[in-house]
Design a protein around this nucleic acid. Sequence first.
RNA 1: GCAUGUGUGGCGGAAUGGUAGACGCGGAGGACUCAAAAUCCUCAGUAGGUAACUAUGUAUGGGUUCAAGUCCCUUCACAUGCACCA
Length: 797
Amino acid sequence: MINFNEIEAKWQKKWEEDGIYKFDPKSKKEKYYCLEMFSYPSGAKLHMGHWYNYGVTDTFARFKRMTGYNLFHPMGFDAFGLPAENYAIKTGIHPAISTNQNIDTMEGQLKRIGATWDWDYEVKTCNPDYYKWTQWTFLQLYKHGLAYKKDAPVNFCPKCQTVLANEQVIGGECERCGSTVIRKNMDQWFFKITDYAEELLQGLDDLDWPERTKSLQRNWIGKSKGAYVDFQVDGTDKKFTVFTTRCDTLFGATYCVLAPEHELVDQITSKKQKKAVEEYKIAASKQSEIERTSTTKEKTGVWTGAYAINPVNDKKIPIWISDYVLSTYGTGAIMAVPAHDERDYDFAKKFDLEIIQVLEGGDISKEAYVEDGTHINSGFLDGMNKEDAIAKMCEFLEEKKIGKATTTYKLRDWLVSRQRYWGAPIPIIYCDKCGMVPVPEEDLPVTLPMDAEFTPDGESPLKKCESFMKCKCPKCGGDARREADTLDTFVCSSWYFLRYPDANNSKKAFDSKIINKMLPVDKYVGGVEHACMHLIYARFYAKAFRDMGFLNFDEPFKSLVHQGLILGPDGEKMSKSKGNTVAPDPLVEEFGSDVLRGYLMFGFNYVEGGPWTDDGIVSINKFYRKVERLVESMTEDTTRIPEIDKVLHNSIKCIRNDIEKFQFNTSMSKIMEYSNALVKYEEKGIPRYYIEQLLLILAPFAPHITEELWAHIGNEYSIHNQDYPDYDESVLVESEKEIAVQVNGKLRGTVMIHVDDSEDVIKEKAMKNENVAKNIDGKEVVKVIIIKDKIVNIVVK
RNA sequence: GCAUGUGUGGCGGAAUGGUAGACGCGGAGGACUCAAAAUCCUCAGUAGGUAACUAUGUAUGGGUUCAAGUCCCUUCACAUGCACCA
């Protein structure tokens, strides 16, 4: 019996020495860029999720390799970030040291998977030779007006002591530590991702991505078509603009609401209302985001004492402020149509404001009518449906120059400043004379100092590091200060897939000629949790750098797959606190890497995942032992066995088809079917050809075992350089076939038919079947449906 | 509330509108063995029947079709995301 661990170590060493998986840029074969999301070296250990992601995807990569592609399959580390820094704060070990230690351990563990990664192209984002180019990408965005600094209300996590991107705030809480995020005004760097909102949305349609992920991104981008409408404040020359998706209901607008933060509030508030308004504003600002946006909360608000003029009927309508209007969406001001909007209805009822019905239907004395209906009480819109009324109203507004059709997005610009140490410094210099000056490209990288004090206190750690902060202005040469914030780690990971194919280029971030040939990534595999962060940022980067002329493509990931989640044996998410984690390492020790990989492929639907079972892995072990036994029964007989040929070719056909769909479980089951067919001939001995085919079809699934057995039967190294078996359709054509016979759609029997049988013959055979005859006896045959090779359905009355 | 996805044996999970439950785990029976392990063979959705077979069955209720796990509509449950988004 083979000792799986021994042979795995042996072959891994040999593969590495021979460099058999090294990418050949000069190859004539078509490239295939297979990429897993790179790993974050926070914990020192690889977990089951890594194995599931990397081990299984490697089988796919190997299959591509054996089917004639020039495989490019790199791996690297997303090495900057908070966890490493927090770990450092706790232990006192410098993040540079702990991160590199973690990377070393993880590399060792990754290598035990026996994957086809080409480590020559490895990328570590915390190395200066990488973040130099991250900084370069920042400068390009800056140069093209896509990076800007702004004093703005931002999400601040009091525990992590840093600002967060919108994408990192989950339900008002910090994505990392769960603290309640507070809002704070700070001077921050942003990337103008909103410039690409429409393109990011449109581009989704053509991507081979899971529907769920596309829907998450669509949702996040949050396109909404509507109109701006200007309202004059009565008795003044001031006006404000509202955003509405239903400008057709303007005749039903009986009041307006401004967000408490709206700039006009102070200017229009009457003396009498001043105190109430001030108090309300203070109360609103004290609330956390969660309290403020709770849907169950009762409506609150205060009248400003001012009136606006409804532009369609010149009616005076009161202007209120309320926290149910958000300053961050639309214009921070709304027109309220209480008859047809639930929120406005609640508000109007509470404060006894007028309600005018402008759409037919419902009973507005009880609740808001939010369905569609014919317009009433709406002047020139009366009798129209929604679409016509919206069009007509937009026309009216534009003609009168008091509004226009527009589109808004929920997507905000990407906030990239972080008041943390372990990240790429932002390459900007502040000079008293010249102002804000970008670091010249030739001065990159702006090196992260190793001796900074990084205990967080709300200030950027780098600010306290004089040796870092002090510099000369690149323009005038005078004394200047550096930007003390670092870049969000998502910036580092927004372009790493562009670096890989040209990873060792010391002159440029990447050579466009190479990148344009090697990208887009053909298959990208990773967790769904990145749907609205990494995956949207990376798309933005590709589009921005296309517009700068660096790239000739704009969608970095043509085809995307999310692996499911491997749960604990109890069906719950694995977690240390629940004590239900299953670590891969001991399993590799016990069964070997091929067996673990095998179970991960066979035991789950890849995109769904599911609970771990120990029995499952044992079954794969059993299966590979069976393969070993079959190999032992090999003979040099050269005869062919038609019965086995049929199973073999069918299996190959199914596997080739299923692997493309990431259906490793069914692929494995087809290999099992084939080996079951061989078992029948085990005692007589199995001809060499069938054993070789077995090893070849299994090779991407169990790379070490098949390599060993391939050598064992005296074949030339390496099995992984062989072509993957193909099938012959003609072998699959059967002269005789059993098909089902139904009577009125119910199965009543089966009959053997011959390929040459005419429909009449098939019909006759079907009718003659004993049980079928019994079921149609005494009834009138209305119709006989014959689907060749599949089924006969006899319809009787 | 909105969006997306999921719902199939004891379990993991299969099924281009065409014989539901492939493959595997677990289970029962048998072969080999002094015995066990390993291995091999057979059985198995559920109910009834010795059996042939019959009924029933893919969350729910309806529909389209000669034929529905699959397509359409209703309801329910679970998961994920967004959420006072005007």
